[in-house]
Design a protein around this nucleic acid. Sequence first.
DNA 1: TATAATGTTGCATACCAGTTGCAATAAGGA
DNA 2: TCCTTATTGCAACTGGTATGCAACATTATA
Lengths: 154, 154
Amino acid sequence: MPLPETEIPGRLQAELMSRGLRMTRQRRTILSVVETAKQHLDASQLLRRARRLDPQIDRVTVYRTLGLLKRHGLIDELDLMHMQGEKHFYERRPQRDHIHMACLRCGKITEFESDLFDRLKGQIQRDCRFHIVVTRLEVGGYCAQCRTTDQPKD
Amino acid sequence: MPLPETEIPGRLQAELMSRGLRMTRQRRTILSVVETAKQHLDASQLLRRARRLDPQIDRVTVYRTLGLLKRHGLIDELDLMHMQGEKHFYERRPQRDHIHMACLRCGKITEFESDLFDRLKGQIQRDCRFHIVVTRLEVGGYCAQCRTTDQPKD
DNA sequence: TATAATGTTGCATACCAGTTGCAATAAGGA
DNA sequence: TCCTTATTGCAACTGGTATGCAACATTATA
């Protein structure tokens, strides 16, 4: 994921502490993995990386910490069109929502920000009188590289 | 789901047959359940309804038929923000894409069509040179009824 | 209408991501 | 430092979905 320059390392940790949550060694480790990830990671990848820093960390702790971060709106959960089973992927909640495009052929994930998307969310809030907490726009299709070559069959 | 008047009963069956697929008793049953559903159903609900019409239908057949319909782009798979576990919900692919809004408090699912959404998809295709096959825009938040009352706690 | 070829089904079993109960442990305030 | 309470790790479990395989049904063909 493009990590914006404005992001402060340790931000997640500071956020959780300011909410009065206990900062354990395990949480610090997991948060640092989430913060330094350059791509979207699933729980097991997250666990593997966390274990490189703290070998006795348990996967349950990873799941619980992810749940915590989700409930506090600090990370977003992605499905990425379920291209690799049913696992979920995580990213720090960005300042501005973006769209995830998944190429059904090469599997590449691309992110895209758009004013139209922002306006669409505004329209939903107004027209539907719906208070948006979280949005997820995922698009499956063929990226520029793959759409020129043969398409996969059924 | 709002089933548009333009929808022809037996449409799914005709579509599959025109693609040269075998039309079995089980498939006919499952297709009719999908076609007549008035809400988004998950695999187990679909199975229960199919069994009312054909008691010996097996759940794997439901999963396999759903997979088939998905691959042929005849139904869409929804997560509905994973509010009820990890199950998936299904709906016939509509003529025009719509947004699913899930109320995090009462669980109500609302659908919404929007020109802005159509334009956004156009922008993605153009600006990202991405050929869209399927989109999924899900929004979690609080509906008009629920946003006025107390919010749930962490 | 019978037959052959191939696609589809049902059963049992396995799988995989994620969850839960509970006793042991550790964080942070007094 | 002690005490309270949150958090952890282990093991076992759950729910949704997928698979191998033999039996069977569908469709094309004769």
